[in-house]
Design a protein around this nucleic acid. Structure first.
Lengths: 266, 266
DNA sequence: ATTATTATGATCATTTATGATTGTTTTTGA
DNA sequence: TCAAAAACAATCATAAATGATCATAATAAT
């Protein structure tokens, strides 16, 4: 058996177990312990797996660590105070008794804190949002079903059978990776899929996006600007972007970090 | 058992309790006290937990509302060591790579600790089970969608659209409030509803029930004894109940408590 | 075909993980 | 306060895992 062939077998096996032992891999590849150890050492150097005494373990997936988790940490730090102001403005659009949909994301996650004081019906596909609201609020929580993707922190079903179809709310809140004339943009196909499942389940589509998002373009278009009811952003938005939104008929809400907010007609 | 697996089990268990004792962890991992103390020392160095006399405690804020949370506290104290032994026996029926279904309940919840060392596909309708496994294991977690009922700690959809229909596993594990000749019994209609949704989604139906359950009768029949593949219980089961199960063609597994577990029970 | 190079397997000394034993320290409760 | 029990640390023996070395087999280059 060729080295590469063994490596592939080893890597696929390692994914299936908490820790794959040397003897298991010996049996699987019908080679000697020495060979397996050399393979493991090589793959360890290549960071394809982690060598541990007794065998090897998978290097991924990263542990899921909730709202302030590591997988989000890259984005978490950016513009937190602006995101918080935007999230606050979003929650101010809601009243007790309302039913809303919240799509998972770093900006929408900030909504959980002001939502803790509310008494609403909240449907979400974000496990950490549900977790937080369940433990820290009295809201009624409804969750989409499916596989929990740890990286993206969303619950997504590959099937058509999905309670998502049974929920309809006046307002849906979502984030975005980028906004331009083409529409809302995302980079991760999984997130696109999750958002597409939800996007027609509400009357108003409210997008939470700090002003930096207007510079970002990604590879995947989620929906046209015209579909959006409101965009909540911060006061650093450029005039040209403001005009772009006006042309598309999108309401623009500027969230002030001073907790005051100002509405501009669109 | 590998060091890493023990560490996961230990960390998983420590989160649930004010203080996890050495003997509890010995029982849970089936290793010696010396090993557990070394593990605790290691994890203490890594700041994954805090070492205290008698065992270890979580490093996180002490106020935790997870599996041992408020709504469970009534039942939690009853027969914990037996439930733990039964849950252990249940997990021993599983191999890495398997897909299983776990129905929420106090007994099935005990499965999370041994499951922390596995690598499986786990479908559940219990939010706390999903929460715990997501945070403390590398298993793939799949969740049913719907409304989260805080009292019963289950996710339940009143609709037919439900990803539950898309999942099928070799084994499903569930608890019960009572077992008698009429079949499995429950008292709460919501729980009946949740269990009925799942009951046909697996080949084998494995019931976890400590021996006290054979004395309980409730108002609602969930399913006939004949539908059950195996029942895991403890050695206090009466002969007449044993015969009843034999007549219905149900396999009986007696989960033995280890010496340490019995100590804990006292 | 021959040689050089590399991959593999076997052997053995070394290191590491584990469990049992023993003696010491700390806690508990009378 | 003191005695018993529990928890702990230290040590050692054993078994497993590993690393180093060398011999052999496979492969490539000339």
């Amino acid at each position: 058996m060729h080295e590469n062939e063994r490596h592939r077998i080893i890597l696929s096996f390692v994914e299936e177990k908490p820790v794959a032992t040397v003897s298991e891999l010996v049996a699987l590849t019908e080679s000697s312990e020495a060979t397996i150890r050399r393979d493991i050492a090589t793959l360890h150097m290549q960071k394809k797996l982690r060598r541990v005494r007794g065998g090897a373990e998978s290097i991924n997936p990263p542990q899921f660590v909730g709202l302030a988790g590591r997988t989000y940490s890259v984005n978490e730090g950016i513009n937190v105070s602006k995101k918080r102001a935007i999230a606050n403005a979003a929650v101010q659009l809601c009243d007790d008794g309302d039913a809303i949909i919240i799509n998972g994301g770093t900006t929408t996650s900030q909504m959980v804190h002001p939502l803790a004081a509310k008494r609403m019906q909240i449907f979400t596909n974000s496990f950490p949002i549900a977790e937080h609201l369940l433990n820290h609020s009295k809201n009624t929580i409804m969750l989409s079903g499916g596989i929990i993707y740890r990286e993206q922190n969303i619950i997504l079903s590959p099937f058509e059978n999905d309670v998502t179809r049974n929920f309809y709310a006046k307002r849906m809140f979502m984030g975005a990776q980028g906004i331009c004339a083409q529409g809302l943009m995302e980079a991760d196909p999984l997130i696109i899929q999750a958002e597409e499942k939800l996007i027609n389940q509400s009357e108003e589509l409210i997008v939470l996006a700090d002003s930096s998002k207007f510079k970002v373009r990604s590879s995947l278009i989620l929906c046209a600007l015209e579909r959006i009811t409101k965009i909540i952003t911060d006061d650093s938005i450029r005039d040209e972007d403001r005009t772009m939104l006006e042309d598309a008929g999108v309401d623009l809400i500027i969230a002030k970090e001073t907790a005051q907010m100002q509405q501009v007609a669109g």
